[in-house]
Design a protein around this nucleic acid. Structure first.
Length: 424
RNA sequence: GGAGAGAUGGCAGAGCGGUUUAAUGCGGCGGUCUUGAAAACCGUUGUCCUUCACGGGACCGGGGGUUCGAAUCCCUCUCUCUCCGCCA
């Protein structure tokens, strides 16, 4: 959520920058400013009347104490009249605030100055590439076939027990999941992140805080009986720890890491995008979250980017980093880097991580602030990134590392898997 | 799931219809004293809206109500604690 005073002071700028996200904000911004003017004058009016009313009430108290009942009675009448006016103003203020808020949350975050205009993911800019693309034999298999060949992931069994997109991992496949999770967590701990295990269900307020609600409601699994949502990412519970919190500046940056299962309904997905592990309803992910001062947040974004790159390097996977264009940056993000790993058998790049700076957009929604050494309270900046999501890493690893003998486990992962090869 | 108790400022804890602009203690910050520190003493101490400013307003778990006036009374929701039941 953008800050009202910022919108007021930078109207043209806001409209122009949101244009980069292909969002026409002209009317919405006008309406927001109009509603805010309305809110201010109504508030002023209400406050003045309340001030009078408070004064009268005090007077009544004093008059009673002095035993001047007749006079007290008179003032009371005046006060009663005032009260109906106050009530009216309160109602209209509430209504205005509600509408204003509804409009305000419709505005996306402004893209960072480095974000270029663009329509879709085809306009994303490759900012970095590393590793050599593997040359596979002609008979190389895609990961879903490797998975059944070595009996390590069972998609059919998942369909039977739950439905499509809920695979079973089995034997060395299950062990590989556990190995990757531990590897990712340990690497984060080496970089001074604090480990959390969050709840997998969250309430409405938390969904609102990070921006999943109200607009992305259909993407989350919902437990109606208890009014709870299954988390689509650990970002939600981990960031919401700080909802309505004022941190001290010396607590920043906050560096948290969490492993969690993630649940996404992925309504509307189809075709090759959902084959095998490419897109699941339930998957595992290690997420890093940082909270920082506005001054440091872009420096930290680079640090997080380097952390993710290091993980892929250690797993010996060829990867590239994209800076998302305006059309592809999410609603809440100011700047997002996507990491893609090359999947040799599918001959395509798979998105395995997304690292974003939300600046104060989430912080404003959830009232996450910090107090500076001078005692000034300011909205903090929030950032997060996958480090990493498992399924596509597994997909690429199976495909790229396949040999006649089996699938070779990258060296740095072997102490976690306790095996070096997946064979029959 | 059943019964009961409770939720007050960073923490502890009073207040249970009108000098509460929330007592008091601890903690924090500033100062006096001191070579320095401690102790003692003095002062100060939250969040939000509005205003150029002075000022005004809101906030005692959330929401609603009664009243001229609510931390205080009523309703409701949430959470915490104790006991019982169930249970990994």
């Amino acid at each position: 959520m953008l800050q009202l005073h910022f919108i007021r002071d930078n109207k043209e700028f806001v409209i122009e920058r949101l244009g980069i996200k292909n969002f026409n904000a002209t009317e919405l911004v006008e309406e927001i400013i109009r509603l805010d003017n309305d809110r201010r004058s109504t508030q002023k009016n209400l406050d003045d009347n309340l001030a009078t009313s408070n004064q009268l009430s005090k007077e009544i108290g004093n008059l009673f104490k002095e035993g001047k009942k007749d006079q007290a009675e008179e003032v009371r009448k005046a006060s009663t009249e005032l009260k109906s006016l106050v009530k009216e103003l309160e109602l209209s203020l509430n209504q205005i605030e509600k509408t204003l808020n509804e409009k305000l949350i419709e505005l996306p975050n402004l893209p960072h100055e480095s974000v270029k205009a663009g329509k879709s993911d085809t306009d994303n800019e490759i900012v970095y590439e590393e590793g050599t693309l593997p040359e596979l034999a002609a008979e190389a298999l895609p990961h879903w076939e490797l998975a059944s060949k070595y009996d390590i992931i069972d998609f059919d069994l998942g369909s039977k027990v739950t439905g499509a997109g809920f695979p079973f991992y089995k034997g060395k496949g299950a062990r590989l999941q556990r190995a990757l999770i531990n590897f990712f967590l340990d690497e984060a701990l080496k970089n001074d992140y604090i480990e959390y295990q969050p709840p997998l269900l969250i309430n409405e307020d938390s969904g609102f805080g990070t921006g999943q609600l109200p607009d992305k409601e259909g993407q989350m699994y919902y437990v109606g009986e208890d009014n709870l949502y299954l988390i689509p990412t650990a970002e939600v519970p981990i960031t919401n720890i700080y909802r309505n919190v004022i941190l001290k500046e010396d607590q920043l940056p906050v560096k948290n890491v969490a492993f969690s299962n993630c649940f996404r309904r992925e309504a509307g997905s189809y075709g090759k995008d959902v084959r095998g592990l490419n897109r699941l309803h339930q998957f595992d992910k290690v997420e890093i979250v940082q909270i920082s001062t506005p001054e440091k947040s872009y420096e930290i974004l680079e640090e997080m980017k380097a952390h993710v790159a290091d993980l892929l390097r250690k797993l010996e996977l060829p990867f590239r980093i994209l800076r998302l264009c305006g059309g592809d940056v999410s609603f809440a993000s100011a700047l997002t880097y996507d990491f893609e790993v090359y999947s040799a058998a599918q001959k395509r790049w798979l998105e395995v991580s997304s690292v974003s700076n939300f600046e104060n957009f989430q912080a404003n929604r959830m009232k996450l602030r910090y107090k500076s050494k001078e005692g000034k309270t300011t909205l903090a900046h929030t950032l997060n990134g996958s480090a990493l999501a498992l399924p596509r890493i597994v997909a690429a690893m199976l495909e790229n590392n396949q040999t006649e003998k089996g699938i070779i486990i990258p060296e740095l992962l072997r102490s976690y898997t306790s095996y070096e090869i997946i064979d029959t």
